[in-house]
């Protein structure tokens, strides 16, 4: 199995190496115990990055999941869904760099969005250099992932057999009741998968954030990915390895937890 060899060579073995390094000093490679871990817990940049990343996830996951569920419910009622699906999926094909060009035009201090605000008699907003940058990032995330998530929901919705829905109708369920008591419970497994995938896709907003605002953006969007990138540039191996291990362990637990829920429901 060449695939297994490749993965072992490029991912597993090096990761073990990183785990070992996380307990060593970066240059002399002496055993250092938990000192690296303790030092990142006292690191301010780490605090900020963790706070922002968590905040970003907590804000944008529910927005994305609910919006896409409603859109998917609406689309599933239609007979002709191809065109709409294409429109929603199209952003997947747009490279991050292209998006950034558009974002600059729309959201810079003198950009189109502020012009609209001015014409409406409102104050312009500094989208890139203030807390509003956070929301621009949320918007790009939702924009990019909406179609993908809609298709995931549709897969779940179309799997619900018609006979259950018909049975509900015969028993006199209103559309709202059908939705709450038949569709939602049947979509639970889909929800777990969507949560996992959207969570992991949320790490990819770094592309847009980095290309639009560079290594040190406004502090509201300074994410873990920025921190890693900057540590990497400065070759701070000890901090990087310790936090990589921490994050990998955390993600591992989250994934396992969601998978357990999923198995239990299946």
């Amino acid at each position: 199995m060449p695939s297994l060899m490749g993965i072992t060579l490029f991912v597993l073995v090096p990761f073990m190496d990183v785990v070992i390094r996380s307990f060593q000093t970066s240059i002399t490679k002496e055993f250092n115990g938990l000192k690296n871990y303790i030092s990142i817990f006292h690191n301010q940049a780490f605090h900020l990055a963790v706070k922002n990343t968590v905040q970003f996830t907590v804000v944008c996951l529910p927005i994305l999941i609910f919006l896409s569920l409603f859109a998917a419910m609406a689309i599933s009622q239609l007979r002709e869904m191809k065109l709409l699906k294409s429109a929603f999926l199209l952003p997947m094909a747009v490279p991050a760099a292209t998006l950034v060009l558009i974002w600059k035009m729309l959201f810079f201090q003198q950009g189109i969005f502020n012009k609209v605000l001015l014409t409406l008699g409102l104050k312009p907003i500094a989208f890139i250099d203030s807390g509003a940058a956070f929301w621009v990032l949320v918007l790009s995330y939702v924009w990019k992932n909406l179609g993908y998530t809609i298709v995931l929901w549709l897969a779940g919705i179309l799997q619900i057999s018609n006979s259950i829905l018909e049975a509900g109708k015969v028993d006199g369920a209103s559309p709202m009741e059908t939705f709450l008591y038949i569709i939602i419970p049947n979509l639970k497994p889909t929800l777990y998968i969507i949560t996992i995938l959207s969570f992991l896709n949320s790490f990819k907003v770094f592309r847009e954030a980095y290309l639009a605002a560079g290594s040190y953006p406004h502090e509201s969007i300074y994410l873990l990915q920025h921190l890693f990138n900057n540590w990497f540039t400065n070759l701070e191996v000890d901090k990087m390895s310790a936090s990589a291990v921490l994050i990998a362990a955390l993600l591992f637990c989250v994934i396992l937890f969601l998978q357990l829920l999923y198995e239990k429901d299946k």
Partner: peptide
């Protein structure tokens, strides 16, 4: 499912 940043150093 692991993001790039986690395996970047390795």
């Amino acid at each position: 499912l692991m993001p790039f940043q986690v395996i970047m150093l390795s």
